[in-house]
């Protein structure tokens, strides 16, 4: 696709522009702002417990969003927690996309018993609720970052695989595939060099939506103390702490919850925007 047309479409899609702007702002906050804040995300200070939000009275030197029950600055924990969430979500979604795409292409292209096998694996994964599987695995194997990545990857690649497979089944009937085979392309070349570029649209759209879902799942696991482990900050465990002090110190849940919602919302907007931008057939 021509770059000029692509950028033009991006500019015209409100959803895409809102999404990408939101993501850039949140990224800038999470990765640049901590440099300017002198508080430590994990060091506790009992004298400074439960300081209510001071907003920008003192600039960044005060506790902008207050402090928690251990006297830690909420803002810096929020930003560092965001970094963890994004890093995890990206690793997980890239893994999901890789597995989903490869399995989907193989399943759709090969057909026959390979297809049946992969589809039954997908059905099996779909029949186990992702969060229940994640809880069981994290509880039995122990909560660690590696296990977290593992469970979130295995519970999320299925949708990508199914969509890719259905796409491939359509694409492989097209003439250029026969032409390339006629020119002597082997199976691997046909699958990954000829067919793959034609199925990337849906993978990208689904991938950007999966980032939002993965962030929510990670925060849910962290809320249940099965995800990112304290004292490392994460939005989930900050909300879980804030829950205990809801009546007297509501700021403890408001800030992380709001950040969580805004980031997921941005990625969902981006996903819908990408559909407008990339999916030419659906345009009015």
């Amino acid at each position: 696709m021509d770059k000029k047309i692509l950028f033009g479409r991006m500019r015209r899609s409100y959803f895409f522009m809102i999404g990408i702007t939101g993501i850039l702002i949140i990224f800038a906050l999470c990765y640049l702002l901590p440099v300017l804040i002198e508080w430590d995300p994990v060091a506790t200070s009992i004298v400074n417990r439960f300081i209510p939000p001071e907003y920008f009275q003192d600039g960044l030197r005060g506790h902008v969003f207050g402090t928690d029950h251990l006297g830690r600055d909420v803002l810096i924990r929020l930003l560092i927690g965001g970094q963890y969430s994004f890093r995890l979500a990206f690793v997980v979604v890239v893994l999901q996309m890789s597995i989903g795409t490869v399995m989907g292409i193989v399943s759709g292209y090969a057909g026959g018993w390979v297809d049946v096998l992969i589809m039954r694996i997908c059905d099996t994964m779909l029949s186990i609720p992702g969060l229940v599987l994640a809880i069981a695995v994290m509880a039995i194997l122990g909560a660690s970052t590696l296990n977290l990545i593992l469970v979130m990857t295995i519970s999320g690649w299925v949708q990508l695989c199914k969509v890719t497979r259905n796409n491939v089944r359509v694409v492989k009937q097209q003439e250029f595939v026969f032409a390339s085979k006629g020119l002597g392309a082997n199976t691997w070349r046909t699958m990954f060099i000829e067919i793959f570029p034609n199925v990337t649209t849906n993978i990208l759209i689904l991938g950007s939506q999966r980032i939002g879902m993965t962030i929510i799942m990670e925060s849910s696991l962290s809320y249940l103390n099965l995800g990112i482990q304290a004292p490392a900050p994460s939005w989930g465990n900050m909300i879980s702490t804030g829950r205990q002090f809801l009546v007297t110190q509501p700021w403890l849940i408001l800030a992380p919850g709001f950040f969580l919602m805004l980031s997921v919302l941005s990625f969902n907007f981006l996903g819908d925007g990408l559909r407008d931008v990339l999916d030419t057939k659906r345009r009015v």
Partner: peptide
């Protein structure tokens, strides 16, 4: 779709 259920619930 962007609200995590724990946050929505607590709100």
């Amino acid at each position: 779709q962007s609200m995590s259920s724990m946050w929505l619930g607590i709100l």
